[in-house]
Amino acid sequence: MVGAWLVGTVAETRKETSTGRSILLDVPDWPGNIAGQHVDVRLTAPDGYQATRSYSVASAGDGSRVQLAVDRLPTGEVSPYLVDDLMTGDLLEVRGPLGGWFVWKPEQTAPVQLIAGGSGVVPLVAMLRSHGASGSTAPMQLLYSVRAPHDRFFADELETLGNVTYAYTRAVPAGWPSPPGRLTKDALAAATLPASESPAVFVCGPTGFVEAVATWLVELGHEPGAVKTERFGG
């Protein structure tokens, strides 16, 4: 049953950025998941107060190991605990895998354009991993909008996972051909598969980023139904 809460044990945590880290959980009853799905994480205070938030799963496929990646929101109720306090061996309540819409399955053969804003890259990393593990021959590429090079989640792995283009908004690496700045419609068009190739497009990031990108994609000729979006907030 989807709605059941499961108890996972933290197997490993890894610092990904100055404000984010990945968390590897052992969840004995985990049924496996499709790339792009999420979990709800529930924290319970000693006085019984509970807070629940959704986090994307970075892993995909079978097995009982589930990887999350979380960015700390300064005013958040749950993310500061997950990023700063949670330790190996701790128990964590999760419910999932959740969501069957913002997902990519290896049997999908259309070209795929992934577009991430900040930590919105997490479910898209799951799609790149699933794509690689399945030997899929569908073209898949990622446009990753991120503040600065040191803010990239899974930076080393993305180098090996394939076709990734970066759009830096605050700081660029030495020798980068263009200054940092917010993603524009022209830059989006230049860095993504054109509508003429009828790609499946997945956009994940903060609400403002997702709405701007989704609007531009439709203006660039993409079918609204081919553009799937997932927003995250505080």
Binding site: M1, V2, G3, H38, V39, D40, T52, S54, R95, G96, L98, G99, G100, W101, F102, P206, T207, G208, T229, E230, R231, F232, G233, G234
Partner: peptide
Amino acid sequence: MTEHLDGNVLAGPLSELFRDDMT
């Protein structure tokens, strides 16, 4: 939080009531 999210976030809460994935 004043910005809206989208229906994906309802997958967990609606699983309390519905058997199918409601997203």
